[in-house]
Design a protein around this nucleic acid. Structure first.
Lengths: 226, 226
DNA sequence: GTCTATATTCGGATAGAC
DNA sequence: GTCTATCCGAATATAGAC
C-alpha cells in the first residue's frame, strides 16, 4: 500500500464512521422511520449515495450501527457478571452486584464522553420496538445474552421461582431504558430537581431501586412459604 | 333532524371513530413516522381524503387520538389518588395505595377488552418520544398531572427529599411503560414462563416492585440521617 | 471511491365532481 | 359528506460519469 492509498483508506474509514455516528444519534432520537437517508448524509457531510455504497441500504445501515456496539456491550456485561460469580464461587450471590453488572455498563456508556457511546442505549431502546421482521431477528438474538443473567439472579435469590425473576428483570430494564429514552421528561416532572450529572450516582440509584423491587417480591414469597 | 340525517351522522361518527381506533393501534406499534395516512385509511376502510377532512392533517389526527383518551386516564388516576387521600385525612399515606393510583389505571386500560382502550398506553409511551415541537407541547402538558403525585408520595415517604421521589416516580413509570411497549420481549426472555394473563396480578407486581424501590431509597436515607 | 443525475415509488394534502 | 384524480415534494435506490 502506498501513501496515497493509505490516505484514501483513512478518509474512507472516516466517512464511514461519520455516517455510523450520525445515524446512531438520529435513529436514537427519532427512530428508524423518522430519519431519512438525506438527513444522515447531510449531517455527516457525505454524498447522498454514500449510505448505499457503504451499507447497501438504509436498513443495512441500521444493522451496522447495531452490530458495531452490541457485541462490546454484551461483553462488558458478561465480564462484570463473571467477576461477581468468580468472587463468590459458592453460596448466594449479592443481588446488587448482579444488578450492577446488568445496569452499570449501559449507564456508563450513556455518560461516556470520549468513546462516543453516549447514544447507543437510546438507539437500542428505540430500535428494539421496530417491527420489521429482519430487524426483529437482529434484536431478538440480543435477548439471549440477557437470559444469562437469570441463573445469576437465581443464585442471588434462591427462594424465587424463575417467572418472578423474569418479571423483575423486565421491570429493571424498563426503569433503565425509560430513564434514557425519556430523559427530557425528568426535568419538567421534577422541575429541575433531578440532575443526571453523576454517572455512578445514577447507577447506584437504579441498582438500589431494582434491588428493592426484587427484595419486595422475595419478601412476599418467603412470607407465603412460611 | 330527519331519519336520513340521523343515519348519515351515525355513519360519519362510525367512520371517524374507526379512523381514531386504527390510528391509535398503528401509531402505538410503529410510531408516528412509521405509519402513513394511506395505511390508516386502508385499514379503517375509509377514503384517503377522510383523514384530512376530519382532522385536518396527519398531525391533527395524532392529537385527536391523544386527546380522546388522555383526559379520561388522568381523571381515573386522580380519582383513585383522591380516594387514598380521603381515606387518610392525616398522617402518612400508604405507599402501595398511592402507587396503585399511578399504575393501576394504565394497566387496567391495557387489559380492557371492551372499551377498546387496550393500546392507548402503548400509544402514549411511543408518542411521548416524538420530538416535533407541536406534539411535544401536547404531551408535556400531560406531565403536569403526574406532578400531582409528588405531594402524595411525600406524604407516603416523609423522610424523602423531592428529588429522590422524582427519581422513584421516573423509574416506576419506566417499568410500567416498558412492560407494555416491550411485551413481546417478555416471552423470549422468560421462555414462556411469564404470563400477562391476569390484570390485577400485573398491577400488584408493578406496585410491589415500585414500592420496594422506593423503600430501598427510604432505608438509605433514614440510615444516613441516623 | 465519490459525485451528479435520475428512475421510481411513496407520502401528505387538496381540488372539484357527485 | 364522500370519492376520484391529481399535485407536488420527499423518499430510497441506482446508473454512470469522473
Amino acid at each position: 500500500m502506498n501513501s496515497a492509498e493509505g490516505a484514501q483508506r483513512r478518509k474512507a474509514e472516516e466517512a464511514r464512521d461519520r455516517i455510523l455516528n450520525v445515524a446512531e444519534r438520529l435513529f436514537a432520537s427519532r427512530g428508524f422511520a423518522g430519519v431519512s437517508v438525506r438527513d444522515i448524509t447531510a449531517e455527516a457531510d457525505v454524498n447522498l449515495a454514500a449510505v448505499n455504497y457503504y451499507f447497501g441500504s438504509k436498513a443495512g445501515l441500521l444493522k451496522a450501527v447495531f452490530l458495531r456496539r452490541a457485541t462490546a456491550l454484551n461483553r462488558e456485561r458478561m465480564a462484570e457478571l463473571q467477576a461477581v460469580v468468580d468472587a463468590h464461587p459458592s453460596g448466594a450471590l449479592p443481588l446488587p452486584a448482579v444488578l450492577r453488572a446488568l445496569l452499570g455498563p449501559p449507564v456508563r456508556w450513556q455518560f461516556d464522553p470520549d468513546r462516543g457511546l453516549g447514544v447507543f442505549i437510546q438507539f437500542l431502546a428505540r430500535c428494539q420496538m421496530e417491527e420489521e421482521p429482519e430487524l426483529r431477528a437482529l434484536f431478538y438474538e440480543d435477548v439471549e445474552h440477557l437470559r444469562r443473567f437469570i441463573p445469576a439472579l437465581k443464585r442471588a435469590l434462591p427462594e424465587m421461582p424463575e417467572d418472578e425473576i423474569c418479571w423483575g428483570l423486565h421491570f429493571a430494564l424498563g426503569a433503565m431504558h425509560h430513564t434514557f429514552t425519556h430523559l427530557p421528561r425528568l426535568g419538567p416532572i421534577s422541575q429541575g430537581r433531578c440532575h443526571i450529572g453523576n454517572r455512578d450516582e445514577v447507577i447506584e440509584r437504579m441498582v438500589e431501586f431494582a434491588t428493592g423491587g426484587f427484595e419486595a417480591a422475595r419478601a412476599r414469597i418467603t412470607a407465603s412459604a412460611r
